Amino acid sequence: MGSTVDVENATCSNSIGSVKLAAYWQDLDFDPDNNAFYYVRVIEVPKPRWTTIDAAGVVTLTVVWLCMSGIGRR
């Protein structure tokens, strides 16, 4: 999978991948009397890490909301 992260500006564009991906799967051999384990792997479109956003000095709506709500004040 590619990445649209602009590290220098701590931004990204959601221009790759599908908007929605859905599937249905049924285990035809499922037996409720036996233990079962299923493994699912999900790949997410890359976004800038919080450390990159912090280093770039980008103020996001989340940061503004946290400041205004008093959450995170010492």
Rank of each mutant, 00 (worst) to 15 (best):
F37C: 10
N9Y: 04
S18G: 04
N34H: 13
W25V: 03
K47P: 00
Y39W: 04
L28K: 12
V45T: 12
V45L: 10
W25M: 05
S13P: 00
Y38F: 13
N14S: 08
K47V: 14
Y24E: 14
K20A: 13
D27C: 06
V45S: 08
V42I: 13
D27G: 01
L28C: 02
P48C: 03
I16N: 02
Y38E: 02
D27W: 00
G17M: 03
D29P: 00
Y39P: 04
Q26W: 09
S13W: 01
N35Q: 12
W50L: 11
W50C: 07
N14C: 10
D31R: 04
F37S: 14
P32I: 04
L28R: 12
F37W: 01
Y24S: 14
V45E: 08
E44M: 10
Y24I: 10
A22F: 11
T11Y: 01
R41E: 15
V42Q: 13
P46R: 04
K47W: 07
P46Y: 05
V19W: 00
S15I: 14
I16Q: 04
E44P: 00
D29C: 06
T51G: 05
A22E: 15
D31P: 02
D33M: 06
T51C: 06
A36K: 05
T11F: 01
V42C: 07
D29K: 05
T11K: 02
P48V: 06
I16W: 02
A36G: 08
D29F: 12
P46I: 05
D29G: 04
Y39N: 15
A23H: 11
E8G: 01
F30T: 00
R41A: 09
S15V: 10
T11D: 13
D31Q: 06
S15K: 14
W25S: 08
Q26R: 07
S18Q: 11
P46W: 06
R41F: 01
S18D: 04
S13E: 15
L28G: 09
V42T: 11
V19N: 14
P46D: 05
Q26P: 00
D29E: 14
C12R: 02
D29S: 10
F37N: 15
T11E: 15
C12W: 12
E8Q: 09
L21K: 12
Q26H: 11
F37I: 14
D31M: 05
C12P: 00
A22P: 00
P46E: 07
R49H: 09
